[in-house]
Simulated scan of single mutants.
Amino acid sequence: MTQRTWFITGVSSGFGRALTQQLLQKGDRVIGTVRSHGKVEDLLENWPKTFSAPLLEMTDSAAVRRTVDDAWRQHGRIDVVISNAGYGLFGAAEELSDDEIQQIIATNLTGAIQLIRSALPHMRQQGGGRIIQISSYGGQVAFPGNSLYHATKWGIEGFVESVAHEVAPFDIGMTLVEPGGARTEFRYGSARVAKLMPEYDTSPAHAFQSMLDPANGLAPGCPERMAARIIESVDINPAPLRMVLGSKALQNTIAVLRQRITDFETQRKQAASTDIPDGR
């Protein structure tokens, strides 16, 4: 079996950690970025020849480019780039501070865009590759109290879908992974919550507090199983543009898209009324 080389951002926990462990166990090489080495010391010790963990802050665009360039320079070829680093921010739009808004956009959206842009020249030159963007079914479905997280995911989905068309002639496949709720630190550790206002206590905007409390039941998604499906997707050709993980996530996504289509269908007459008549 051919050994692949993977570049994955945010491997300290969650999907990044699960992906990295499975890939190393099957003999692949992983360059996994982290903000500190504390949570990956065991990986560095157990797989010193096939795992490296460069420090990277995703909000530093110059550092993103430098880290990607260094990885290609050191390894010659990288088969798969997984843009995974990111976090959730909860609270009504009015409750979010300017700094919180700027930080999540810089991390989840701008950072992911710069990572992909940095990888593309290398993949063109090597004759192809695969880019996987970890999005969310929140890139298709929106919930109250999650507006800026949705803004970053809807934004990266549009970016990736457009770029997928641009780079297909170079044999570069791109996939948006849209997981549902999973038992990772995203929900039960790393989630950030705005300074909540009592005015919204009776609003749907604060419903997320129940979801973040493990006492109310854990998310149904298994990170290890989701990671396995992501890894398997690299062998699917052509690359699937979107991959939803989780039965509830798929059910909700289909329901929302069907309602969206129904709403659009009612607008046929209105839409046509703005066209310039034929022959004029």
Rank of each mutant, 00 (worst) to 15 (best):
P48M: 14
K26L: 11
P214L: 11
G180A: 12
R258S: 09
D79K: 06
S273P: 00
H37M: 03
F90W: 11
A182N: 12
G91L: 00
L43Q: 06
V40C: 01
V167C: 04
P144R: 15
Q74W: 12
R29I: 03
G129W: 15
V167T: 05
T110I: 14
S118A: 00
P204L: 12
L19W: 06
W47D: 07
I104P: 04
A92T: 08
L257W: 12
Q25C: 10
G10V: 06
Y149L: 00
T253K: 02
I156K: 01
R29N: 03
Q21L: 06
M174N: 09
G88K: 12
A215P: 05
G279Q: 00
L109D: 13
Y200Q: 01
V244Y: 05
G217S: 11
A205W: 04
L56H: 12
R17G: 08
E45I: 04
Y87D: 10
Y188M: 12
G111F: 08
A227L: 03
L115P: 14
A71G: 03
L19F: 07
V34G: 02
E57D: 15
P48N: 14
P169N: 15
E265H: 13
K248S: 09
G111R: 03
E166M: 11
T202Y: 09
P223C: 12
F159W: 12
V193S: 01
E224I: 10
A18D: 08
G76K: 04
I104F: 15
F51G: 07
S83P: 01
D278C: 02
V244I: 15
E45Q: 15
Q114L: 02
A219L: 05
A151V: 10
Q126T: 02
H75Y: 14
T2W: 06
S135G: 05
